[in-house]
Design a protein around this nucleic acid. Structure first.
Length: 496
RNA sequence: GGCGGCAUGGCCAAGUGGCUAAGGCAACGGUCUGCAAAACCGUUAUUCCCCGGUUCGAAUCCGGGUGCCGCCUCCA
């Protein structure tokens, strides 16, 4: 089986064949560091993190680059408002980005260049474009002449004439064509500036990605990713710059993630309908956000709401509970050896599920990284593991233990590709309780005290008292679970 | 106005020509339990927005309609 990837360039799924067998070169557009990241940024980061992990899981040597835009209008504006410089602003938000992403478990790409580190490369690229007649200078500005590049519009499927007709921007004086875009901008006083053949200035937005991707990945590479909103103009312009300059295909597979919506509308800064990642962390563990974002296919829009976050939270509880049970029963999850066999029907049925999980998971992921379907397989396995344990009232045999341990291990192995379920269940549940109690404003000691009191009542078979306490806890959204080893409790997730 | 996308059970969400339309959440019934909870079992779409068409066969392909969304300005 080969991996199939939906390519924005062709608008269809294509078999994935990297330029060099066994190696993948990918570039993902990162953030402009001028503010805190919101859930939309988290989605993009997670989607490409999963693609990165999955390609590695499938045995590819992957070189992944994700940039930081650290010079731009918004950063400059912010710096002026704060009375600092744009470097300080960028630095601060890059730092914040790392904090948010680390918690989400987003792996660091191999290279994370910043635009300002590649000014000479950008200037060089612009010079090539001028030399080849694809760019022209007007005062201190340099523009790309879109009419000169015949492929312009091939990614976003637009025609130049249509774009001009529908253009909502005031035409900049000096541009030969309204759709021409800036490669280099003359800087105004007080703005960050670099010396260039066209005078003091700074790069336009799009040129950095062309320069940096070429530097790390070559003039043709395999995968280029980013949010759907980057298709036009950003990625269209990158193609124009790079292909005009080098005369080669730029990126071969264009991958774009869908938006995060709120009430069916795109979450965005300008609409003001966004939640920062940090705000989400106040209420939910980062892993909840991750699971939530992976329950839909990466190209579909996904609606962010408390309800769906709670659903994801319940889903995580379910997974961790299965793992916890398996660990309790087997001591540890083992990965060694072959799967044990037995004539027992329940045993064989679970064995088959475990035996096929990797290929089922891989089939779904091969199909354009269908994490939603892949998660379905994992839930299915989770239930099979629970069912098997439920069906055994007696102590499990060594073979049964081995089977469960391997099942748990494979569940985790697959989940790891999605960046999920890597913590210990204890850690997850503890954190879950801590956060939920904080939201409710209840102290843990208080709950523990009531639980202890109830345990005493139960010991004395004073059921009335025990139930009274349980009802009180229930009013506080605390659900108790009496197990053989003692009573456990969890906070019921709101809005379930 | 131009271009693109989406519409699947109470909710979320896979499935893009043919096995019983995955999976999760919720609800109800059952097993377990002192009673519960959790877990497990069962029930919940003969049907995939509507109307036509292609086909032996369509949720899946084609045409038309309706509704929603996105891009065309910075945006993941």
């Amino acid at each position: 089986m080969t991996i199939r990837i939906y390519n924005t360039l062709s608008n269809q799924k294509e078999p994935f064949e990297p330029l060099q067998p066994g190696r993948v070169y990918m570039y993902v557009c990162g953030i402009t560091a001028y503010d805190l990241c919101h859930v939309g940024h988290a989605r993009s980061a997670i989607v490409f993190d999963v693609i990165y992990r999955y390609l590695q899981y499938r045995g590819f040597d992957v070189v992944c680059v994700r940039n930081f835009t650290d010079v731009d209008d918004k950063i400059i504006k912010r710096a002026q408002e704060e009375g600092t410089n744009s470097q300080a602003v960028a630095e601060r938000y890059i730092e914040a980005f790392y904090e948010d992403m680390d918690q989400l478990g987003v792996a660091r790409p191999d290279y994370e260049p910043r635009a300002t580190q590649f000014i000479p490369e950008m200037i060089e690229l612009i010079e090539i474009l001028i030399e080849k007649g694809f760019a022209y200078q007007v005062d201190g500005d340099v523009y790309f002449a879109v009419e000169r590049f015949s492929g312009y519009g091939k990614l976003s499927k637009r025609k130049l004439d249509d774009m001009i007709a529908g253009a909502r921007v005031a035409v900049e004086p000096g541009k030969k064509n309204p759709m021409d875009f800036a490669l280099w901008k003359a800087s105004k006083p007080g703005e960050p500036a670099w010396a260039s053949p066209w005078g003091e200035g700074r790069p336009g937005w799009h040129i950095e990605c062309s320069a940096m991707s070429t530097k790390y990945l070559g003039s043709t590479f395999d995968i280029h990713g980013g949010g759907k909103d980057l298709i036009f103009p950003h990625h269209e312009n990158e193609i124009a710059q790079s292909e005009a300059a080098f005369g080669k295909i730029f990126a071969r597979y264009w991958v774009h993630n869908g938006f995060v919506n709120i009430d069916q509308e795109k979450m965005s800064k300008s609409l003001g309908n966004f939640f920062t990642i940090r705000e989400v962390y106040e209420r939910y563990q980062p892993e909840v956000l991750r699971l939530f974002l992976l329950t839909s296919h990466y190209r579909s829009p996904v609606d962010f709401s408390p309800e769906s976050m709670s659903e994801a939270e319940r889903g995580l509880e379910r997974f961790y509970q299965t793992i916890e049970q398996v660990i309790e029963l087997t001591g540890d999850l083992s990965s060694s050896g072959q799967l044990p066999t037995s004539k027992d029907t329940e045993f064989s049925s679970l064995r088959d599920k475990i035996d096929s999980i990797l290929s089922r998971f891989q089939n779904d992921m091969d199909d354009d990284f269908n994490t939603a379907a892949a998660l379905g397989q994992l839930f299915d396995l989770s239930r099979a593991l629970n069912r098997f344990q439920d069906s055994r009232s007696r102590k499990p045999t060594p073979e049964e233990k081995e089977l469960l341990a391997q099942g748990g291990h494979r569940l985790r192995e697959c989940a790891n590709v999605l960046g999920l379920l890597q913590r210990s269940p204890e850690e997850f549940f503890q954190e879950h309780r801590r956060m939920s109690l904080a939201t409710l404003g209840i102290g843990e000691e208080e709950v523990e005290g009531m639980i202890a009191e109830r345990a005493q009542a139960r010991k004395e078979k004073n059921w009335a008292r025990a139930d009274e306490i349980r009802d009180k806890l229930a009013e506080m959204s605390i659900m108790v679970e009496d197990k053989a080893e003692g009573t456990r409790w969890r906070v019921k997730t709101a809005s379930n």
